[in-house]
């Protein structure tokens, strides 16, 4: 039973990882790409880790997988934030159908 649950978690994780990669290709500009890549890939990777933990239990491997979930969930958003901020500061424009850019309004020189 727990094997099947682990397999299901890994399958869901793979599916979301795939969707994140499709989003990386389909979205129009860097900010939307980061949205797809960060959310889907973080959740997908965490789900794969959790599936691994379910399958191997509280062994040395399983606890490392759980710790990996914590670290991935803490660091992936930070890297996305750093990338988007750097992109904006180096002058990459938003997609031309974007509605608003308050950041550009507040820091027009950068």
């Amino acid at each position: 039973m727990i094997e099947i649950a682990g397999m299901a978690c890994i399958a869901i994780g793979l599916l979301f990882d795939l969707l994140g990669c499709i989003g990386l290709v389909r979205m129009p500009d860097i900010y939307n790409r980061l949205q797809a890549a960060t959310k889907c890939v973080t959740f997908g990777t965490c789900s794969i880790m959790f599936g691994t933990f379910l399958m191997v239990g509280f062994s040395s491997t399983g606890v490392k997988a759980l710790l990996c979930i914590v670290f991935v969930a803490l660091t992936a958003p930070v890297s996305a934030h750093a990338l988007s901020r750097a992109a904006h500061k180096s002058g990459i424009k938003l997609w031309d159908k974007s509605v608003i850019d308050k950041y550009r309004e507040d820091y027009p020189n950068e």
């Binding site: 969707l19 499709i22 989003g23 389909r26 939307n32 938003l94 159908k97 974007s98 308050k102 507040d106």
Partner: peptide
């Protein structure tokens, strides 16, 4: 992502 029309309306808000 998988919707064929790509229903997004992006922007930066405060």
């Amino acid at each position: 992502v998988i919707h064929p029309m790509r229903p997004i309306k992006p922007g930066i808000v405060k």
